[in-house]
């Protein structure tokens, strides 16, 4: 089972949230989808928790690293083969060159 991340609960002005809750809220924090009260509690926790600052930083670095993956275009020969396959399947004849 997947646990939903958006476990935003109303927090009173002085409410404390745990490192575990911070971790669950990271995605919504980064996309600025936390409600104002939870965002305040989140930031207040970060101000005094180096563990969560480190965790957040490595989470962001992971997202950046995934985002940096680069992929090649379709190889020319493969493109020709697929085109030929489609023409034969659909029209029953190889494509005109």
């Amino acid at each position: 089972m997947v646990r939903h991340t958006s476990t935003q609960r109303p927090h009173s002005k002085n409410a404390k949230i745990t490192c575990q809750q911070i971790t669950a809220l990271i995605l919504d924090y980064l996309t600025r989808e936390l409600n104002a009260e939870t965002a305040l509690a989140f930031k207040a926790h970060l101000r005094k928790c180096p563990d969560c600052i480190a965790f957040l930083s490595t989470y962001q670095k992971t997202v950046q690293a995934a985002h940096s993956l680069r992929y090649e275009s379709i190889p020319l020969e493969m493109r020709k083969r697929v085109r030929q396959f489609l023409q034969e399947k659909i029209k029953g004849s190889p494509p005109n060159r």
Binding site: T18, C19, Q21, P50, D51, A54, F55
Partner: peptide, 10 residues
């Protein structure tokens, strides 16, 4: 609710 392994390294 604390991280199980501390400190968390950046």
């Amino acid at each position: 609710g604390h991280h199980e392994v501390r400190p968390v390294f950046n």
